[in-house]
Design a protein around this nucleic acid. Sequence first.
DNA 1: CCAAATCCCACGAAAACCCATTGTATCCCT
DNA 2: AGGGATACAATGGGTTTTCGTGGGATTTGG
Lengths: 163, 163
Amino acid sequence: MALEHLFQGSALNAVDAKGRVSIPAFLRGVIERRGATRTIVLAKNEAFPCLIAYDPAYAALRHAKLERLAEKEETGADSAVGYQQRNLMAFAATEEVPYDSSGRILVPPMMRLKGELADLALFLGTGETFQIWNPELLLGDDRIPEDLKDIARFRLNERGAAR
Amino acid sequence: MALEHLFQGSALNAVDAKGRVSIPAFLRGVIERRGATRTIVLAKNEAFPCLIAYDPAYAALRHAKLERLAEKEETGADSAVGYQQRNLMAFAATEEVPYDSSGRILVPPMMRLKGELADLALFLGTGETFQIWNPELLLGDDRIPEDLKDIARFRLNERGAAR
DNA sequence: CCAAATCCCACGAAAACCCATTGTATCCCT
DNA sequence: AGGGATACAATGGGTTTTCGTGGGATTTGG
């Protein structure tokens, strides 16, 4: 599987009082080139304290990928349990939200909680998907490469935030 | 993987007040022969104080390579972290910029900072990719062969710059 | 009937677009 | 071979469009 439209780049946008955020235009471009929808799928990232996001068309691909991973893993009695867990995580634990004509979504409260988002949202392209971070959490995570933190700091400076 | 169209040659172009630079025509030719896009991908060079640039098609190749690597690896928790770190560096730390009908890009402020670019940009073809330098930094780097510095000096003289 | 979500409009800054000029290399004709 | 015409590359500047964002109005659902 080789997707031709990849999410890349970074941006720092505000979460306003109503809980709205603009999805950066360059990410929306990829979403709309992959499929015709103007919606994104949100989920908790399993490895990091941030959200993962992608387009609905990719959700199916992502599921297939998890399946393949599962087949390589254990084939014992608990594999059925693992299968169920993965499906639950892949579908029940996600939310699909449309963005409006100006490219904004309303972050669902549960996702805002799961992603620990405050008033700034850092968008990071990761190829097939993209991530949404609370920039403070990214700066505090020791698994994040320094170069990436530099990007976060740059985006914060750009915006005039003290740091 | 053997690309048939390679980046080669050198040129020195101006960065204007708006932050725009012309991509040399001979490099654009390669980009458009590799794919149909009129965009380039910019990233910080890991070894030298300059930028590295390539076409989106080449970015997709790099992505495919990462994916194959990931599928071969163990399916553990810490492998997922490594996978994400690689994807973050490959995509979040890069920016894709289109060039207009006259072949110019707007250098993103972050890249201008990372590449330490001032008002002159030296383009150097390196085969699969090309580099963009602040010529002063290249002349001051003791890891750069003298012959290459001569090229930089020649380009500077050509332009009438004192040096 | 109230709260929350959606829609709508407005604004400032930045980016994309368009046109015009200059210089240089190329071609063609005599 | 010279000389003029031509095409394209690089660059400057002005104009239009888009993007992110705030705030109000309207609709929806419990």
